[in-house]
Amino acid sequence: MNAPRTPVSAPTWWDEFTTAGSSPNTAAARLHQGNILYIENVTVSFDGFRALNELTLYIETGELRCIIGPNGAGKSTMMDVITGKTRPDRGQAWFGSQLNLLKMSEPEIAEAGIGRKFQKPTVFEHLPVFTNLELAMRAPKGVWRSLVARLSGEARDRIEEILVLVGLAEQRDMRAGALSHGQKQWLEIGMLLMQEPQLLLIDEPVAGMTHQETERTAELLVALAGQRSVVVVEHDMEFVRSIAKRVTVLHEGSVLAEGSMAQVQDDPRVRQVYLGA
């Protein structure tokens, strides 16, 4: 089931980030809202190697879910399947209860409300930071509209707000390629926010960030959850512990364990996978 989209006006939209504690991120609310993402029995194989093996995973509306797992566990492939980049051999993937992700193209999925941040920060290097955000903005994305599109004052304000939020206000006219690695990560998160997705898939958000930047990212992600659902794939255990309520452990393409960080860490199978026999 799709959560109704909140009409966007700048002040309330800003509140969503700052009033994380008051957002209805409770078990009851989750139950009420149901799942936003259904992945069932998805199998993807490359040349006989099974990147995903009968993977089944549900993400609840408004949830912040962390996904961990050793290299090759299928984390990135899972994101590829959700965003339409890779078509699975078998299985189902639904966004809400209406949208069959396996039948949609990448832009359609993006427009339906799934945003993705890549493992390696990917921004438009030769365009100014401001333009990067402008292009990501939730707006008609057709060719003919683009020829006559003008930036409204309202839209401009929103871009400025996001610039402040991701700490790039001073760099607004800089070419994105000239940003530091951490700044690019933030810019990409900013672009994601401009899209106003209902589900954010975030691949290794804090790789290459300083300690301070990592902390700010954690705050932001926690703030985002609630109104939006957030799926974070991360290697940094410290970071996962600081934000995660529920953690899913992937191993060899399927779910090994799921639960709170403490539960997962105590699971003997997880220990074995991570630490060896």
Binding site: A110, F118, V123, L135, G142, L147
Partner: peptide, 27 residues
Amino acid sequence: SKFGRVLVAVRDAENRARFIGYRVENY
């Protein structure tokens, strides 16, 4: 125009443009 900016965006990071929701092939 915005068309030109999207075109450059596609040149720089085609996948990113696609995941933002642009039908890259049409541009």
